[in-house]
Amino acid sequence: MQILFIIISAITLVSAVLVVSVRNLFHAALYMMLSFLGVAALYALLESGFMAATQLLVYIGAISILVIFAIMMTRRLMQTTESPFNSQWGMSGFVSASLFVLIGAIVLQVYPLDPAVAGGAPPAEELVTNTVNQLGVAFTSADQLVLPFELASVLLLVALVGSIIIARPDVEAEVEDES
């Protein structure tokens, strides 16, 4: 188990680094999929099958496709041979690092490493029994997640409308441009 975890995490992290360092954009997208797959494997290792399948369905089956389409729409970006670093890499590196520290601190706060101190982490048996049904009930119970659930749908709606508004004028402009 431990060895499996270390191997999968190593694959995930290495491919995540490659995503930002590889010059060929398409290869970067492939490494991104590999890194997503690693995360899915980690979920499966945690016996959270639903999350693993979601990771596959949404991130590899949909988001990656969207990213590749986006790459294909960028004119002549494919032939680029310039370095993936620009003048802001130091700044963005700093921001990512501080974000990592922040998230790490929050996680440690909620689930302390020392199990004796752990108040937040529930025993494992409670977690594994039919989580999918619990999730479904939680999504729609008034005292649980129903508000985030409806907000998610509003968010998706806004994303859809916004992207159509942004993407549509491009079509018209391009049509005039080309003909």
């Binding site: 969207l66 729409m73 859809l160 993407a167 079509v171």
Partner: peptide, 14 residues
């Protein structure tokens, strides 16, 4: 470069 239409379909799909 491909046309933007593919991207819109992919977006609605997501």
């Amino acid at each position: 470069q491909f046309k933007v239409q593919y991207y819109i379909y992919a977006l609605i799909f997501v």
